[in-house]
């Protein structure tokens, strides 16, 4: 019997079936309204906005610009810079975050005494927010605070004003803030590594290192892939760290896509421009999501 037939179990006659349908829609309506107003409507509206350019003076009507606005925005050096910065930021944060999370998870997965304490410590940054991490790191990195000189780093000129170092500094802040989450994900993944296969490998004479690369990592690959995709999506949505630490500077070297969108909207009052950028952001997210779905599909086929 299929699931649908079973879920219809209560339905015995036409009258109550109508009642069931009515109840179903009633239950869906609250969520549907929210989605319609705050997800689907603005999503579609983006496409409309993208075709209209906003005049430089307020009060004038928007002008239909066709594809010209889209091509000009996507072809602009600002956009290319922003995209480069964002990709660079993802490259700096995602692999390092996964690697550190995995390292901590594997170390804390040992059957030793007191591991619970280490697990708590390693997952602790989950309690921080982007704002908390940014304020902590921003303040610690400021030239007035005595920490950097003590670590042998020259705080002048300020790191966050240095075009080369600003983005890596933001990346370190982000990696630290996400470390707890990464650790928890990888630890959960480790629980699913089949114990009997590990034992079989040990009986076959495999060392710790071989076990790790031949058994643990392959078993974890779905988790690692998930973390990579979700991490990349998050990286493309980075806003708070940039707003709190660098405001896109110095020399636009930290002007990531989301920050770019918001400044176009808020500072330059240019919703058309921002809409084109939003669509670009959506397409990037879509590609990443489809990549993951594709991979999951394959995994399911192999597993069954």
């Amino acid at each position: 019997m299929t699931a649908d037939e079973e879920t219809g179990a209560r339905v015995t006659n036409r009258r109550s079936r109508r009642r069931e349908v009515r109840l179903a829609y009633l239950l869906l309506v609250p969520a549907l309204i929210i989605f319609a107003v705050f997800v689907f409507f603005p999503f579609i509206k983006n496409f409309q906005l993208a075709f209209y350019s906003t005049p430089p003076f307020p009060g004038l009507p928007n002008r239909y610009a066709g594809f010209s606005q889209i091509t000009s925005v996507l072809g602009s050096s600002d956009f290319r810079n922003s995209l480069t910065v964002t990709v660079f930021f993802a490259v700096l944060t995602v692999p390092a975050g996964i690697f550190l999370g995995l390292l901590l998870a594997v170390l804390a997965n040992q059957k030793l005494r007191g591991m619970a304490i280490y697990r708590t410590i390693f997952s602790s940054t989950i309690a921080t927010s982007v704002a908390v991490a940014s304020v902590v790191f921003g303040t610690l990195m400021s030239p007035q605070v005595g920490l950097l000189p003590w670590l042998g780093i020259n705080p002048n000129p300020a790191i966050l004003n240095n075009p080369t170092l600003a983005l890596p500094a933001v990346a370190i802040t982000t990696i630290w803030q996400n470390l707890g989450l990464s650790f928890i994900l990888m630890s959960a993944g480790l629980q699913s590594v089949p114990e009997d296969i590990l034992e079989a490998a040990k009986v076959d004479g495999a060392g710790t290192w071989t076990c790790f690369w031949r058994v643990t990592v392959p078993s974890l690959s779905p988790t690692i892939f998930f973390a990579a995709v979700v991490g990349s999506i998050f990286a493309f949505q980075t806003f708070g760290q940039i707003d709190l630490l660098t405001q896109g500077g110095p020399e636009n070297k930290t002007n990531v896509l989301t920050y770019f969108i918001v400044t176009q909207l808020h500072v330059h009052q240019n919703p058309g421009y921002a809409a084109v950028l939003s669509i670009a952001l959506f397409l990037i997210t879509l590609v990443l999501t489809l990549l993951q779905l594709r991979f999951l599909e394959r995994r399911v086929h192999y597993a069954r």
């Binding site: 705050f38 997800v39 409507f41 603005p42 999503f43 509206k45 983006n46 906005l49 999506i233 493309f236 949505q237 806003f239 989301t258 969108i261 918001v262 909207l265 919703p271 921002a274 809409a275 939003s278 669509i279 952001l281 959506f282 997210t285």
Partner: peptide, 8 residues
């Protein structure tokens, strides 16, 4: 993502 719809 929410960032995509934030403008509207």
């Amino acid at each position: 993502p929410f960032e995509v719809t934030v403008v509207q």
